[in-house]
């Protein structure tokens, strides 16, 4: 039991009559990279929102390190060591890269409500923020505002910010979405680099990324777990091939029309 960091027991959520996630059981192994894949509308992001408490499950239970976190709030989850990223790039656009990372770092100073104190006090975090930026190759962008950075760099900045909290568990929602091949390679490298000492759960569309990074893959379809296992096993599962490829093909036609 001890090597399970996050566990979902029969979690379900329905919006109106629509069951988006249907009694999903999930066990995330400590230290692994666990990918959640599936066709569009399979409930991946909803499952993600459930795990990070942005949604409350209709039923079921979520355990983090054996502790029941089903009714915790998103901010509390972050304090426990679960930090998520978002599908759309989650940076603070009008802050510089350095300030973006500092926002994550400053929480531990315990003076976040100190409105009477000068911001200069946050300077003590600059060296650490800079180190985080270097870790993702953004040292030259430290004083650039996030809004002016290219897309791939924003995703890297987001990861640097997340790392600032030293999360035990990182949840990345489509980290390579909308990226060119070069950026995909960079981010994949980055994830490989930062996995040391932590667990990563990612929703990902890019099967290339999943096959190189993930230790375990969970395939979702219509809100249910279709298959689970390493890439070699999952990719040969006929049900997965049918559901995944079948729906993707339809979708491709849909977007052409």
């Amino acid at each position: 039991m001890d090597d399970t960091i996050l566990e979902a027991r029969k979690i379900r959520i329905s919006f109106g009559g629509f069951v988006a996630v249907k009694d999903v059981d999930l066990k995330i192994k400590r230290g692994s990279i666990h990918a959640i894949i599936g066709p569009n509308g399979a409930g991946k992001t909803t499952l993600f929102n459930l795990l990070t408490k942005f949604h409350r499950p209709t039923s079921g239970q979520i355990l983090f390190n054996g502790q029941d976190i089903t009714s915790r709030k998103p901010a509390e989850i972050a304090k426990l060591g679960i930090v998520r990223s978002f599908q759309i790039s989650a940076v603070f656009p009008h802050l510089t890269a350095l300030e973006n990372v500092r926002v994550a770092l400053q929480r531990k100073l315990g003076m976040n409500y100190h409105f009477w104190r000068s911001q200069k006090i946050l300077r003590q975090l600059d060296a650490e923020a800079m180190a985080r930026l270097e870790q993702v190759g953004l040292q030259d962008f430290a004083h650039t505002r996030a809004v002016e950075m290219p897309y791939g760099r924003k995703r890297a900045l987001e990861i640097a910010t997340t790392l600032g909290l030293e999360p035990e568990l990182m949840l990345l929602d489509e980290p390579t979405q909308g990226m060119g091949t070069e950026d995909v390679g960079t981010v994949t490298e980055l994830i490989r680099k930062v996995r040391e000492g932590r667990t990563i759960v990612m929703v990902e569309h890019n099967l290339g990324v999943v096959s190189t990074l993930a230790d375990t893959i969970t395939v979702l379809n219509r809100g249910e777990v279709l298959a689970e296992g390493p890439y070699e096993v999952v990719s040969k599962n006929p049900q997965v091939m049918e559901a995944y490829m079948g729906v993707s093909a339809e979708e491709a036609e849909g977007t052409d029309a």
Binding site: T52, F54, P74, I77, A78, F86, A90, F92, H94, V103
Partner: peptide, 15 residues
């Protein structure tokens, strides 16, 4: 400022 710029992100960082 972080909240104004991106509220869900500020929340996910534990604020």
């Amino acid at each position: 400022q972080a909240i104004r710029e991106n509220e869900p992100r500020a929340l996910s960082l534990g604020y």
